[in-house]
Design a protein around this nucleic acid. Structure first.
Lengths: 170, 170
DNA sequence: ATGTATGCAAACCATTTGCAATGAC
DNA sequence: GTCATTGCAAATGGTTTGCATACAT
């Protein structure tokens, strides 16, 4: 599906949601949705705010937070809190299904294409819970940091050894 | 495994970690670990702080945050951020493996026993990433809220209908 | 003896809130 | 015309930080 079609679909989806809940269809709300679906991957509020400042349509932070709440509620946006202080968001449609590899050491987040871990059999067991979306967060140490840690530990051990040696000599 | 054996295991694990990283083995650190492994299920910093105030060993919030950082780093504690403002924590060992069902409407978090979604085949694909733990968050609407929402929508529709009727009469 | 860890209080900063002005209905 | 929504600025509150003191090594 090309992006313009996706955007139209999503806009209609949003309109239905606003109608159903008797919320007003303001230009701000559509502009925000548009901006979010113009970018792939993760974003936080600050980057969204900045990118909208630069564009034709300026919105306040308060409106950004209000609107993203609606978009979460109707399932067009997904929210992540990987462990840093800021929440990350992501459009819900048009992205491949993926898990997140989060490095506990450097905080880096990588996407990892999964094969839909969530089987129909498991969905069945959840019939009393209406699933909007799910997130798989895999925490660990990324390759880069594994190497860095090993180097650090090696260094520490060397220092200890030399200290011990000095003490013994005394 | 009974709880006292688990605690001993975990304490040794922590000691090894502290030694390796040249951190001091303070009574505060062990007391915090002890408290965490005395409770099953989720907890936040505030409840941990309060429960430790009441106990024999008082520690400051700053120390709590410092220590939990170490416990996360050595994998004895797991951190969750389900969407509310407070982070939730959980001991990493001695709990059954479970996913989390998070209601987007009321914020309630339920545990859901899974059948280890994370297969060895998938682990293989992640060989360049050393997994500490993973979290599966399933967001959606819980049964209670589904019913509440339906009731609300029904009410809204009725209001609309009566409004329309009034307008037509005018 | 040395310097890390603790406790306290202040600072931080993402997010929320209150309120007057705007504009969708 | 009404009242939900916006924008601004102030408030909130979980978490972090700075610094003097305590204590593990």
């Amino acid at each position: 599906m090309d992006n313009s079609k996706l955007k139209e679909l999503v806009r209609n989806n949003f309109t239905d949601y606003l109608n159903l809940h008797k919320h007003r269809k303001t230009p701000e709300r559509y502009a925000i949705l548009e901006h979010i679906y113009a970018k792939k991957g993760h974003f936080d509020m600050d980057s969204l705010y900045n990118s909208m400042q630069e564009s034709a349509f300026r919105v306040s932070r308060a409106t950004l937070y209000n609107t993203i709440e609606l978009l979460l509620d109707c399932g067009l946006v997904v929210k992540h809190q990987f462990g840093a202080n800021v929440s990350q968001y992501e459009r819900a449609y048009g992205n491949d299904n993926h898990d997140h590899l989060i490095c506990l050491s450097c905080g880096d987040v990588k996407e990892y294409k999964n094969s839909n871990l969530f089987t129909p059999a498991q969905q069945k067991k959840l019939q009393r819970f209406k699933i909007s979306y799910y997130s798989m967060y895999i925490y660990g140490i990324c390759n880069k940091c594994i190497r860095a840690k090993k180097a650090e530990e090696k260094k520490n051990n060397k220092i200890t050894e030399s200290k011990n040696t000095r003490n013994k000599k005394k």
